[in-house]
């Protein structure tokens, strides 16, 4: 698929209105899924669906952005763009999963956090920052997969994990192509050029070492065969989670820290920066 499509065609594929969403995957992977609501502070964010269910014989926490397919559903789900309450719900449930030893799966599909006045008033920056910081402390396996759009800090707030995977025709970017064009050209109409330069395809991210695995989609894209796409996702998630379940908790958290601490070392950064500096050496 990715061989023949332009970068912009891939962006359109990642945003395809018939692309399987979190709900389409979770109904196939976790048939007894029980949704849990609310951040216990003020609200429930419908842009993030979260809950528990039986996955390969054990209870797991699944959460993900839900974009909505009809206009009324999209309005309700806010196109998968979370408010602060969504990040707070995610962390509340991550702590709960840690309490009971449930592995966590995050399926990311968002253009970004909601760029609105209310989100700012209720502390969206600190909500995302707090989530990113908290994920490093959750002592159970965490695996994230970008299933459609992975946009900016809003996506990263759900994707600080032990393994990060991408569906083949999904994108993951520092900012949406429109936002990046608006920043560097002051003109969001330059979105195609921005997308081409940003290196946001699954192949790019795999090459950079930002994701561990790209999950092949049915030919024609995930939207042509939900069952096949869900099977591929399920197998890849299981492959990622299983070895993590065996791992010592302290080691798991140490490796999660190192995954991000040295994430840029694969692309030649190590030779530019010199070798890793140990905490002990820093203290001296």
């Amino acid at each position: 698929m990715t061989d023949t499509l332009s970068v912009w065609q891939l962006v359109e594929m990642a945003r395809h209105q018939d692309r399987p969403y979190f709900g389409d995957y979770v109904s196939r992977l976790v048939p007894d899924f029980v949704e849990l609501h609310g951040d216990r502070l003020s609200a429930d964010d419908p842009a993030l669906v979260a809950g528990i269910g039986t996955w390969h014989g054990r209870t797991a926490l699944f959460m993900g952005n839900q974009k909505g397919r009809t206009l009324s559903e999209r309005l309700h789900r806010n196109w998968g763009m979370m408010h602060p309450e969504g990040y707070r719900k995610a962390i509340r449930l991550a702590h709960q999963a840690a309490k009971f030893g449930f592995p966590i799966v995050c399926l990311v599909d968002t253009p970004g956090a909601y760029p609105g006045a209310g989100a700012e008033e209720r502390g969206i920056a600190a909500a995302i920052a707090g989530a990113i910081m908290e994920w490093f402390t959750i002592p159970v396996p965490v695996v994230a997969c970008i299933i459609g759009e992975g946009g900016s800090g809003g996506a990263l707030g759900l994707a600080v994990a032990d393994r990060v995977l991408m569906m083949e025709n999904s994108i993951y970017s520092v900012a949406s192509p429109e936002a990046a064009a608006s920043i560097v050209w002051r003109d969001n109409a330059r979105k195609v050029e921005a997308a081409e330069q940003l290196q946001i395809t699954s192949r790019d991210l795999l090459a950079m070492g930002v994701v561990e695995e790209v999950i092949p989609e049915p030919s024609g894209g995930a939207h042509t065969d939900y069952d096949a796409a869900a099977r591929a996702l399920d197998e890849a998630l299981l492959r990622a989670v299983q070895p993590l379940l065996e791992e010592d908790t302290q080691l798991l958290l140490e490796r999660r820290y190192e995954r991000y601490r040295y994430i840029d070392s694969l692309i030649g950064a190590a030779e530019h920066f010199g070798p890793k500096v140990s905490a002990k050496a820093l203290a001296e």
Binding site: L156, Q197, Q199, L205, M208
Partner: peptide
């Protein structure tokens, strides 16, 4: 690009 995002 996304490597800048990873710095967060």
């Amino acid at each position: 690009g996304v490597l800048a995002l990873m710095q967060l």
